[in-house]
Amino acid sequence: MKYAMVIDLTKCVGCNSCTAACKIDNSTGFGVKYGQVLELESGSFPDVTKFYLPILCMQCENPECLKVCPTGATFKTDDGIVLIDKNKCMGCRYCAAACPYMARYFYDDSGRPLDVPRMDLEDERHGTAEKCDFCIDRVREGENPACVQACPYEARTFGDIDDPSSRVHSLMSRAKSLKEEEGFNVSVYYIW
């Protein structure tokens, strides 16, 4: 059992519905984006090409963040998700510096300027590292992660990579990942 996400770059138009859904669902503060969409271009005017690259925690099999975490707050679940135990984290930020995918944030509730819903949770996250957890609570209830559910273009597919009948499994033959030469063995893949 290993959860994975495959993102189809031919379908992403950079509308950021995923980012909004992620921010609402996870009640993240200003500047904290568990998932975000990068805009990349190559060439020069007028022969320029552009595409959007959604990124999130890649849920590495060999996570750098886990390796460097001094307190053991970062751990891996059996289904391949990297999680942070908020009660153990001491907020040293070492994991955020070590993460090769810009996926980790340090949570500081001064980044919450307003008493706005979905930003007003009683927060045990204060002073700790945070990141995308594939919306594990939703996933365990049989739902998709918020970004997958929100994508208007169905560019994101989520599922169990070990299940031969799953859609992610069938997409794997074409899938590539970021910094794959580094051997982190990620669980987020891209097709194009």
């Binding site: 001094p70 307190t71 053991g72 153990k88 001491m90 907020g91 930020r93 002073g127 700790t128």
Partner: peptide, 10 residues
């Protein structure tokens, strides 16, 4: 540290 009270866990 964000949570110095957890320093002993380090």
């Amino acid at each position: 540290l964000g949570k110095p009270s957890n320093f002993w866990r380090s």
